[in-house]
Design a protein around this nucleic acid. Structure first.
Length: 499
RNA sequence: UCCCCGAUAGCUCAAUGGUAGAGCGAGCGGCUGUUAACCGCUAGGUUCUAGGUUCGAGUCCUAGUCGGGGAGCCA
């Protein structure tokens, strides 16, 4: 029969037609034996196509039953020919009998089942992180991988349908103006040999590297380096994507970004993926509407397309995983200003309704506990906070008109959702050159570095806006996974670059 | 980077300063259309590393490495 049957994925078999002859290929999850009916083995086989494994019911009449089938262990790879049948307890399984043309071919054995890192039992996520090359074989990490893929495709689908262009902004950047935290240096100079004072076969860095574009006329300390100037891995594609926005109108980036911050938490990675749309002829309200529509599309899609995996997350990882997404899809997000939000928080403190660890004061950034109070306790729904004080926000955010001088705000917005707090941060960008320059100077930034960004305001400037969404944090929120290192295949963090 | 906690069998964890244990997993056998299977037997250890205290250290002290939780920073 081998060769005459069709290779089907496990998800196809589980929804297949009884009586159909099929070939399946995958990895053994468990094997159980029975002496009934002259020998019988139940082999659970998974191939990643869906959450569930398919059960092979292998009869003892196979020529290699005793020698091979009865010795299969977790992790072995096999091909099997059989017939789709009804499982007595419901669902589909595959009957593998020599008399009906069945066969099992072992492709790869597990050399020592006792020390195979993935055992048929629960493992801690901390342990599985140490065997990240094998952890995707577990049901949890398989589910995460499928959900991650589903969300990535849903992001592209959402923007593509609305006429957005995906712009591939650079990963290496030689501009010093992204200004969002510590950056990884990109260099071909031999730093180690230089600092150890050893002779170097390659050009070395001058002893006193006075970073960036400092004094004019000074020798460029990076003249010998690959790019002839200081280069880093990008921390954000926003400034670059704004340039394309000023011609294509609707654009977005979706790619890796890098932060060299020594932050060791369950919510930070040194390498993570970000989604950053940018829309022209748009204000803050349009930006917020876009973000709300995007989140709803992503959640609705993952609930529809990965119902099997989401059911697992709700059962085993986070009880509310499914219901909280379903709720968000239904509810309109509430919008209010930062100033109104602060008033609510102050009122809650004044009436003794709520105690916070950190004080609330207009002009300071809200702590995570404040954000969560607003979205989880006070409003009990997603909240879009807008118009933050300028002193706690980035230079490129548009100054609001008609503010009191002491209470100047910018057109920024954060989306807060129950269960996690801030999930999206965005703003309308400052499109007026004089105001932008004022902000750059105010914040002591090197204005010369921004020449191309400023050009966008000199040549056909338009109001525009955008936001950023950390992809791994989105996956954390969707799956309920506690540690961000478990929602990316190979996490990069301080002291962590294995695999 | 700061604070707290931890590191013992393949995994998850016990062990008053005095002979290193269990559950799961693995191997073998039994039973069974099984599916968190069940029953019996067996194997499995440089107690993270380097010092120190002690007659004696898995246990106490010091330093380091790695891991977890929290904070800061943020996405």
């Amino acid at each position: 029969m081998a060769g005459s049957t069709v290779w089907k994925r496990v998800d196809e078999v589980l929804t297949g037609t009884v009586g159909e002859a099929v070939t399946v290929k995958g990895w053994v999850r468990t094997r159980r034996d029975s002496k009934a009916e002259g020998g019988l083995s139940f082999v659970a086989l998974h191939d990643g196509s869906c959450f569930d494994a398919v059960q092979l019911v292998v009869k003892g009449d196979l020529p290699n039953y005793a020698a091979e089938v009865a010795k299969l262990t977790t992790g072995c790879s096999i091909e099997a020919d059989g017939v789709i049948v009804q499982n007595p307890k419901g669902g589909r399984e595959i009957a593998v009998e020599a008399g009906r043309g069945g066969a099992v071919r072992v492709i790869g054995w597990v050399e020592d089942p006792d020390t195979y890192p993935i055992q048929p039992k629960p493992h801690s996520f901390e342990y599985l992180r140490e065997v990240a090359h094998l952890r995707v074989r577990t049901n949890t990490f398989g589910a995460i991988a499928r959900v991650r893929h589903c969300l990535a495709m849903a992001v592209h689908e959402f923007f593509h349908r609305r006429g957005f262009m995906w712009v591939h902004t650079p990963i290496i950047t030689a501009s010093d103006c992204e200004g969002a935290g510590q950056m990884f240096r990109v260099s071909t100079l031999d730093w180690v040999r230089r600092t150890q004072g050893a002779p170097s076969p390659t050009p070395t860095h001058p002893p006193t590297a006075a970073g960036g574009a400092s004094g004019a006329g000074a020798a460029n300390p990076f003249a010998e380096d690959f790019f002839g100037k200081e280069a880093h891995l990008t921390v954000s594609g926003q400034l670059n994507v704004e340039t394309y926005c000023m011609a294509l109108s609707r654009v977005y980036t979706f790619g890796p970004t890098f932060r060299a911050e020594n932050s060791n938490t369950s919510r930070h990675l040194a390498e993570f993926w970000m989604i950053e749309p940018e829309i022209a002829f748009a204000d803050l309200a349009a930006d917020a509407s876009l973000a709300e529509a995007m989140l709803k599309h992503l959640f609705a899609t993952v609930l529809r397309e990965r119902a099997d995996d989401m059911k697992f997350f709700a059962e085993r990882i986070e009880k509310t995983a499914v219901e909280r997404l379903a709720k968000i899809v239904e509810q309109p997000f509430l919008r209010l200003t930062y100033t109104e939000g602060v008033k609510i928080l102050e009122e809650a403190i004044r009436t003794g309704k709520k105690k916070f660890e950190f004080p609330v004061k207009w002009g300071t950034d809200l702590q995570s506990e404040h954000e969560r109070f607003l979205t989880e306790e006070h409003f009990k729904r997603p909240v879009i906070l807008t118009n933050y004080p300028k002193q706690i926000k980035a230079f490129y955010m548009r100054l609001d008109d008609g503010c009191e001088p002491e209470r100047q705000t910018v057109a920024a917005m954060d989306i807060l959702v129950p269960g996690i707090g801030e999930i999206v941060g965005g703003s309308q960008r400052e499109e007026r050159l004089d105001k932008l320059d004022e902000r750059i100077r105010e914040m002591g930034l090197p204005i010369k570095e921004y020449w191309w960004y400023r050009d966008l305001r000199r040549y056909g400037t338009v109001p525009h806006a955008g936001f950023g969404l950390g992809f791994e944090r989105l996956i954390q929120f969707v799956t309920g996974m506690q540690n961000i290192r478990d929602v990316i295949p190979f996490p990069r963090a301080p002291k962590q670059a294995e695999f």
